[in-house]
Amino acid sequence: MYLKELTELDGVSGDEGRVRDFIKEKIESKVDGVKVDVLGNLIAFKKGTKSNRKFLLAAHMDEVGFMVTNVEDDGTLSFAPVGGVDPRVVVGKHVRIKGEVPGVIGYKAIHLQKRNEILESPKYENLRINIGASSKDEATQKVEIGDYVSFATDFRCENSRATGKAFDDRAGCAVLMEIIERSERFEDDIYFAFLVQEETGLRGSAVLFEQLQPNLALVIEGTTAGDDPGLPEHQWATHLGDGPAITFMHRGYVVNKKIYESILQVAQKYDIKHQPKRRTAGGTDAARLAKTGGGVPAGVISVPARYIHSPLSVIDVDDFKNTVSLVGKILEEGEGFAR
């Protein structure tokens, strides 16, 4: 499992280099070919025994985070979110700038706030990153405008639960890496795409069709759990521990019926724990793949994660293992899958 290494790397949208280099080094010797395209997507190839279809497995390398927008006179940094980050989860957190410079995001102490102010959501305009510099000159020796900022969160695993940042979508990257570790060949040609800039608008996946012309795809994601005590059960999207979540529809795309039903069939056939994703909000690269070139029908399988798009999300390691099993079994089905 590469979950620890992958989630502790910093790779906000547009700055996926560290993640890409790590994955490339680990998989290079286990595939038939690997390349990095113009946008920065890492694409690996494994030849099939029949090679009648091109089957694309996709996961995105990028995570949500921030970018430094200005270095202030007092040495603090103004910043803006990259991807969707609720400002309420930002306050009081450790961050890392360009993967190395530590910083903190604070907020005025409760003593200085009016009673009703405490309940208000902070605004990005009023938040600063503090890197311990006391002047602009001192700060600019370490950082500059445009530098990327990530949450600084260590991976931890207790029993079957793991916590860390960026399970969306390093969990998906880790699933693809586990599949690559397997030595056997499948019937279809398999393309493994580790994509960039998903969080800023499904951008990396937009250029796959012109390069690969895949016949079908599976997008592997880390997705919303929502199984919080504050929400009634019928509003949960997924539930930790119930297995990989299988999507029938999300924003901008109804999953190809044949692919959706075939995923369910494979899960049932091999008795792999699974659950339908029960909310339709949020989108994945499947929506972009459907709309590019001649159209790529895709399915979506996700590892449920609580509190995604925050510094600290939680997954169930068994859900991760079941996702690996399910994707593996799908590939073993060969040309029989979604036919």
Binding site: M249, R251, G252, Y253, V254, A287, A290, K291, T292, G293, G294, G295
Partner: peptide, 16 residues
């Protein structure tokens, strides 16, 4: 197909 959720099908219908 799938016009109502974001003009999906027609995005690729004319490609060939």
């Amino acid at each position: 197909v799938q016009e109502e959720i974001g003009l999906v099908g027609a995005s690729v219908a004319a490609y060939d």
